[in-house]
Every structure is written in C-alpha cells, then in structure tokens.
Design a protein around this nucleic acid. Structure first.
Lengths: 165, 165
DNA sequence: ATGTCTGCAAAGATTTTGCAGCTGA
DNA sequence: TCAGCTGCAAAATCTTTGCAGACAT
C-alpha cells in the first residue's frame, strides 16, 4: 500500500477530531492492498477473511470516511452495487474502459482528454471539479480472431459483468 | 414527443412479439413528454397524476423495456436512485455537466470529444460501443460575482442534488 | 472524561418477482 | 387461444441508523 494513503488519512482524521481505530486500520489496509475495484460486500469478505470481528456496518462507515477524505472514489461500472476505486491517489485523473465482451476494466490516463474536456467546460461557463469518463467497448481481438484472452480468463474466474439489477 | 420514439418502440415490440398496452402508452408518452431526466419514482408520480391506475411495478417494467429498446438511457448523476435520460434519441452522443453549486445538469455534444475518445479506445485495442462522460463543475459566475442565477433558481425549486445515500 | 466508534439488529430505500387473473394479437 | 401483461403484495438487495457499551485521546 502506498504510504501516502495512510498519511493523508491520518491528516484527515486529525483535522476532524476523529479516532484511529483498529478496525479502520484493517479495513484501510485491505482496501488499498490491491489496485482492483471492489464493492462494500467484497471488502467486507476480504476483511472477514483476515479478521473475523469487524461488522458490515463499520465497513460501510469506513468506506464513507475514505470517500470523504478523497482517498477512495465511487465509480459507476454499471453494476447495482456501489463500486469503489482505490487508484485515484496514484492516478488522480484516470478513466475507465469496460469491455462488454468480458467485463474487464482497463484504467487509462490521457492528458488530451483532460485538456479538451476542460476547454469545453470553460466554454459552457463552468470550471471542472472532477470528470468521469467511462467507455464501454468491444474487444477488437475477439472481433477479428473470434476469441479474446480476457474473455476466456474472465469466464474461468466468473467475472463477467452482472447486469444492472 | 418525437414521433420517432413511438415508431421505434412499435418496431421493437413487434420484433420481439410483445404487446402494445394502454399502460405502456401512457408511461411512454409521459416519459418523453419533457426532456428532463427522471427517476422511476418521478415517472410513477407523473403517470399517477394523469391516470391513477398504473402500478409501480408496471412503471419499473416499462422502464426496463425502454432501456432494452435503447430509447431511454440510465445515467449516473450521483444520486441514489437510477436516473433515466430521454434525450438520447435526438442527441445520440451527448454528455452531462453537473453543477456542484446548484445541481443543474447541462447536456452538451462535442464531436472532438467523441473523436478523441474513439482514438484512445482504438489504441487500447477496443472499439467503442458507448461512452459516458460526466463533468462535475462549479459555476464561474458564482465564483466571480458571488452569485449564480441557477443557484437561486434551484434553491427556489428545491432542486439541489441530493448526496449519494 | 468525553465525544467518537463499534456491533447488532432493525429500519429504510429502491427494485424485483411470484402469482392469479386480464388482455392484445 | 394463449403468450404476454398487470396489479398486488411479498421478497430481495443494498445501505443506513438508533442504541448501548467500548474505546481513543
């Protein structure tokens, strides 16, 4: 886990007169231990696997805290559960491409996109606070070769995107 | 309401062997009677106001139908209820700017954005199916003049954005 | 000391679904 | 006719909350 995360969280906690607790420590460590997106339930399961004594409510409350502290971001990947993205600290302005064939999510940054969006926003009389770009796309390999390595991998791991409920 | 909507819906209904019912007619007419975004509950209320005999379940089911038929699009404006956008038929590739000051939503199109995103997608080995760009921004007028007409208007109508639950 | 956190269980909000009867093609 | 549609109420899903006791500072 990027040590900057813990540092920024500590600052946030201090500034607001909150408390550093064992539960928060475990949850935060787990949330940022991988750079995968996750849902509240995912995280609850992961936390349970290493420490059986944290309640679902605390996980939800800590997620709220991390979002307020701007360490975690809620993103919309088209699923019914809220998804959290732990990678905005390293890549503060990244976008998401979701493969409709296999559900794989690719994160990418592009300065041109940021610049262009900023221009459009200015022209409309606003100033950008945050932008969210999601591209849903099909895999070109699957299209031309009839198969795509991600599709196979995702079938094996059961990771195809659920439909919005 | 754009007559193309009804036409495309009829086609979809025919192709899939579905039925044209009175309830669907009312719901569809109401959904596309304005170009505002709405939630299932909003639409249910509007429908109720003109015809007291349609159930919430039918509204939900019809919304699902309209999304499948690609006449309505689910969008993420940061609220807890699913929001539907009836304007994708007229403007198939528009984006959303949400003012964080007043909650106003501005829809805009920009060919440059589309082109650029398409390029990036290609470079990543995919082909775009759909893109969703949401820009959260502050009002420049509010910033420089200390006030913004939309903020005032939105306060009057109680339309500030709810926080994600 | 005292205001924050936590776990629990209950409540809340939103959406989906099983079923019996109704209706459009 | 008969598959699809509807309303109803119940269920399901996801998230929040009130409360009493525990804990951090």
């Amino acid at each position: 886990m990027d040590p900057g995360i813990q540092e920024r969280l500590d600052q946030y906690i201090q500034r607001r007169g909150l408390r550093r607790t064992g539960q928060r420590e475990v949850i935060v460590k787990e949330a940022f231990s991988r750079d995968e997106h996750f849902t509240a339930e995912d995280l609850f399961d992961r936390v349970r696997r290493r420490n059986a004594d944290i309640s679902r409510a605390t996980v939800y409350r800590t997620l709220g805290l991390l979002v307020e502290a701007d360490l975690l971001r809620q993103i919309d990947l088209g699923e019914s559960q809220t998804t959290y993205d732990p990678n905005f600290h390293d890549k503060p302005s990244h976008n998401h491409l979701v493969c409709v064939d296999c559900g794989r999510v690719v994160e990418f940054e592009d300065a041109h996109i940021d610049t262009l969006n900023e221009c459009v926003t200015r022209r409309l009389g606003f100033r950008t606070v945050r932008q969210t770009l999601k591209i849903e796309a099909t895999c070109e390999q699957l299209r031309t070769n009839g198969r795509c390595p991600n599709l196979i991998a995702s079938r094996l791991s059961g990771k195809r995107l659920r439909k919005r409920r």
